[in-house]
């Protein structure tokens, strides 16, 4: 029994520190559950999202650097191509760290990370990647409203950001737009990985998505978008569906979430 515990501790090893911080997640905020209608996948029906905790900021280069230091298999040179493609951490100039541009990049969101790398990071923190539904639900918020989906100003701002090419250096996470929940940069900073990014049954030939081929997808039924005027959601779903799990992209980062339940247990 003791030996088992010991192995467990050893196995956790590098990640244990983060797990210890679980009780007081000052770097997280609560997102109160509710319902919303996603663009795809529910045939226009509302989907319920349970309350959850979400990182205030996307994970930064400095945070990811610390993770890599503790978990050398996620080093640029060590990572298996199955888990991250050739552009993995391309913007880092040194083998195991940010390198030359540390000052400019340390507080900016980490990008060029694969789904596997993002997932490993969150697991290490005792957290997980958000689901598409959780992420979309939290992203509905403007500065003042939990659901700003019908606010034309908020909508236009999102659309404007999605239309701009990447800046040379992404700004520090603290400087980005803060929404109703206290989440920074949900819109306007980077795209973000979700755990089930591959759950939207849409294909690259987006004009065929309205009536999907039954040969390609089982059980997809009618798969029309719930709101054909929601261009910002279209762009997010299109982006996700262009990904594979080992892809790394220059404006794709991530943040982690935690179930509310875990929190209450931790508090006790």
């Amino acid at each position: 029994m003791i030996r088992r515990l010991l192995t467990a501790i050893l196995m956790l090893g590098a990640c244990s520190m983060a797990a210890a911080q679980k009780g007081t997640p000052t770097d997280m905020v609560q997102v109160k559950g509710g319902t919303f209608v996603p663009l795809y996948g529910s045939d226009g029906a509302a989907v319920t999202v349970q309350s959850f905790r979400m990182d205030k900021y996307p994970v930064t280069n400095a945070e990811f650097e610390a993770f890599v230091a503790k978990n050398p298999k996620w080093k640029k040179t060590a990572v298996k191509k199955l888990f991250a493609d050739a552009n993995y951490l391309r913007h880092w100039t040194s083998e195991s760290g940010i390198g030359a541009n540390t000052d400019k990049l340390k507080n900016s969101p980490v990008t060029n990370v694969s789904w596997f790398a993002a997932k490993a990071y969150c697991e290490c923190e005792g957290k997980r990647l958000p689901t598409v539904s959780e992420w979309e639900f939290a992203a509905l918020a403007s500065e003042t409203k939990a659901d700003a989906s019908s606010d034309p100003k908020f909508y236009q701002r999102s659309l404007d950001w999605y239309s701009q090419p990447n800046p040379k250096y992404l700004p520090p996470v603290q400087q980005s737009f803060r929404n109703y929940y206290g989440l920074h940069g949900m819109i306007g900073l980077v795209w973000e990985w979700t755990s089930d990014f591959n759950s939207a049954l849409i294909i690259g030939e987006s004009r065929a998505n309205a009536s999907l081929d039954r040969q390609l997808f089982c059980g997809a039924g009618s798969n029309g978008a719930s709101d054909v005027k929601n261009y910002v959601a279209f762009m997010r779903y299109a982006f996700r569906s262009s990904l594979k799990a080992n892809y790394t992209v220059a404006n794709l980062g991530f943040r982690c979430v935690q179930d509310q339940k875990v929190q209450t247990i931790a508090k006790k």
Binding site: G41, L82, W115, F116, K119, S195, D196, N198, S199, A200, L201, Q215, L216, F217, C218, G219, A220, G221, S241, K244, A245, N246
Partner: peptide, 24 residues
Amino acid sequence: IQELAALLNMKYKMSPNGEIAHSN
């Protein structure tokens, strides 16, 4: 399962009614 599915380029989604929509 989710990891393996991602590597196999599968798209799939659980519906509340227990059906799973998925690529073939």
